[in-house]
Nucleic acid binder design. Structure first.
Lengths: 104, 104
DNA sequence: TTTTTATATGAGTTTTTGATCATGTTTTCA
DNA sequence: TGAAAACATGATCAAAAACTCATATAAAAA
């Protein structure tokens, strides 16, 4: 099988590569929610949050579902969290290596 | 253990979130190399490539090692490739879901 | 010691991303 | 029907990222 193009992989990584979008995904990890709950929780401007949600939906990471006036978001694929956890692991290990260097 | 901050995770994801940097990492995956080899292979401007390499080194993803005039790069942590593969999987599955939708 | 090879970087430009304000749209409910 | 709640979006601005050209630096070889 051919590898997925670098462009497509860069696109999904770009969608994830923002502190607030990561915080949004962690909030939804705890429990699916609408922006009206996430906004106050993360202290984000309504229009700003709306655009972040749009990015996450357009990139196929979140799935929106209307429920009356609200729109509930759920994760399209739990593996996203594997990716976020892995990123955390990489940061942790990288920091460890930096410390080792200082100790030498 | 406390989760790694969203900012730090966003930083490493940002370093990965560029088509050419992904192609650079795939080239190094095949075999560690210097920019002088990667540049022509990927058809990248020298100064442009140099800056991409700097980003990958500064973010702790690549480790530079001088060998005469050249600088060889190797991966700091193979798990980076797990992350890139996972991103590919996510793209593939997301595309599959889109197709399903059309078929409905 | 001059040349050559590989890499780095200052300066300038263009493109992309993010934030905000004001306003618009959609849905529900009084 | 009209107000209220949740969300979307046009317009604008600022900041960051990416690219390029020219030039600088570092190491090796002639």
């Amino acid at each position: 099988m051919p590898a997925i193009s670098a462009k497509l992989r860069a696109d999904i990584l770009s969608a994830l590569a923002h502190p607030n979008r990561i915080r949004i995904l962690e909030a939804i990890r705890r429990s699916p929610a609408c922006s009206c709950e996430i906004g106050p929780e993360l202290n984000l401007e309504q229009s700003n949050l709306s655009r972040h949600m749009k990015i996450l939906v357009n990139s196929g990471i979140l799935i929106p579902q209307r429920d009356g006036v609200r729109i509930n978001y759920s994760i399209a694929d739990d593996e996203i969290y594997k990716l976020l956890d892995l990123a955390g692991e990489l940061v942790r290990k990288s920091a460890e290596r930096s410390i080792q260097e200082v100790e030498i």
